[in-house]
């Protein structure tokens, strides 16, 4: 059923295809960024939040990418475990730092939005806490990758960790929600982006996705070439 995929999973074929696609993807990313910024800064102030909606335009996509990238990592890890394919190993490995950066951005921009809106940089709210935990999961995954010297072994071991995380994230989310409601009662997350805010938000979301794909492909390509370089240099 994945035959079509494996035709492109050959590293040489992948290099050709991704090399041809990347210039277009980068151009599309730049175009959506410019559009999103133009539309965002042209949007009228919200009657409640004023112009802080501008933060939400970059905060919400970052938060969505934080989980989406993890999903990409989990899928790659599955392929890595089942099909033992080098491309899947590299894909999983390179996704992690990108996901960690998106998660960090979600936390920072969220905090910068929270201060004027809630009057505090941080509350132990369910969504915030589980995002923070997600950030640590990324860090642990990266640390484990760097700690294991043999690459193939590192790929398998880290794939297991990624899958455990995938199973555990909903549980973490649930427990944190339960804990926050137990202690706090007030759940604060107004994400009702309507009317004039929806379009700039969607365009920005598209930009984040394009940027991620561009960076991901670039990183995978870099790591593949690094392998080739090492064998040329006479690695044992």
């Amino acid at each position: 059923m994945f035959d079509w995929l494996f035709r492109y999973a050959n590293p040489a074929r992948f290099m050709g295809l991704s090399g041809a696609l990347l210039p277009w993807l980068w151009s599309a990313a730049l175009l959506t960024l410019a559009t999103a910024l133009y539309l965002g800064f042209s949007a009228p102030p919200d009657y409640q939040q004023g112009r802080t909606v501008l933060i939400l335009f970059i905060h919400v996509p970052a938060a969505i990418m934080a989980t989406n990238v993890y999903a990409c990592m989990v899928v790659a890890s599955l392929f890595s475990l089942i099909n033992r394919h080098i491309l899947a190993d590299v894909a999983a490995r390179t996704a992690a730092p990108l996901g960690a950066i998106f998660t960090l951005l979600a936390l920072i921009t969220g905090s910068l939005w929270g201060k004027p809106m809630w009057g505090t940089w941080w509350v132990w709210d369910g969504r915030l806490t589980s995002t923070l935990v997600q950030f640590f999961l990324y860090l642990g995954y990266i640390a484990l990758w760097n700690a294991i010297e043999d690459e193939t072994r590192a790929a398998r071991i880290c794939a297991v960790l990624a899958l455990v995380g995938a199973v555990n994230i909903p549980i973490i989310k649930f427990s944190v929600d339960w804990w926050a409601t137990l202690h706090q009662g007030e759940s604060i997350m107004s994400g009702n982006l309507a009317g004039p805010f929806l379009v700039p938000f969607l365009v920005m979301m598209l930009f984040y996705m394009l940027l991620f794909v561009c960076l991901w492909l670039t990183r995978i390509r870099t790591l593949i070439l690094e392998r080739r370089l090492r064998s040329l240099m006479g690695a044992a």
Binding site: E149, R230, M233, G234, A235, A236
Partner: peptide, 15 residues
């Protein structure tokens, strides 16, 4: 000479 830029983790015991 050829291995100058290679990280040591990829060296064989002899290297």
């Amino acid at each position: 000479s050829r291995q100058a830029e290679l990280p040591c983790r990829y060296l064989s015991a002899g290297q």
